[in-house]
Design a binder for these strands. Structure first.
Lengths: 142, 142
DNA sequence: GTCAGTGCAAAGCTTTTGCAGCGCG
DNA sequence: CGCGCTGCAAAAGCTTTGCACTGAC
């Protein structure tokens, strides 16, 4: 079990939530991911292991996890995707290939510093930021 | 007529597109905006002036404008929004207030430089980037 | 005259909600 | 044993598509 997974279960228990089949499976699947997944991808993946899972429960679990800041919701042109939000605050952003649809993570300290600076310069108290780069990946450029 | 509006009509004509009622109205409305609008906001605004406008035509016009790189499509949690893409390449990003839903534009040279650098550091040829900051605006912080 | 553009209505998707039953604590 | 969690089905948006008609070039 990853540190995030333990943190997630602890936070849920602390918020008075009871452990149910669907949400437990969503958590353990997310914990094993390198990058973001759509609700449908999560549902399909879980369905192959347990025929009883319902799509609505996947959405409900994700909503709760987002509300407790355990998961980040990302907006893409073809719908939302979700990924674990590490308690360390460490995070990454995404690159999407317009040709093949592939999504990859990347991290960049200089970009983070620029983003933090922008928040301070405006009247806003910035809670979160999303960055999405779109273009042609190395393979599709060929 | 703004420079963008003239540029848009010229580009459409050059692509062999014929001028129709709906798309002309969408263009003249977008040209007058300071920030992004949803398809429904565009539809509602045009409907009050011309009862014949159809929502499907608004979507079709926006698709074409996005395809010709005259308009940028932005993904928000409650759907897509659209705004003119200036031929100068000059552009801005968005701040959204989680409390009141207000969306405001901002521009930051340091952020743009950081974004451009990231593109070069990876195998990607980056065509576009989107940045969305979320938080509490000055009014809602009170 | 041809064919892109248009409005309407219907369909497609993702996401949410209602409801009755299950099961965690 | 109460109430949160679940699955199913239905509903609710946003967006796209089919079709016949209109009108720009």
């Amino acid at each position: 079990m990853t540190a995030w997974e333990a943190h997630a279960r602890e936070t849920l228990a602390g918020a008075g939530r009871r452990a149910g089949r669907a949400r437990e499976l969503v958590i353990s699947l997310l914990a094993r991911q390198q990058c973001c997944l759509s609700a449908n991808e999560i549902f399909d993946s879980l369905r192959t292991k347990d025929r009883r899972i319902g799509l609505a429960s996947v959405y409900r679990a994700l909503d709760q996890l987002v509300g407790l800041q355990l998961v980040q919701r990302l907006e893409f042109a073809d719908g939302a995707r979700y990924e674990p939000l590490l308690p360390s605050g460490e995070h990454h952003h995404h690159l999407m290939c317009d040709d093949c649809g592939k999504v990859e993570p990347f991290a960049d300290g200089g970009l983070e510093r620029a983003l933090d600076r922008v928040g301070g310069d405006l009247g806003y108290r910035v809670e979160a930021h999303d960055v999405l780069l779109r273009g042609a990946c190395a393979e599709c450029r060929a």
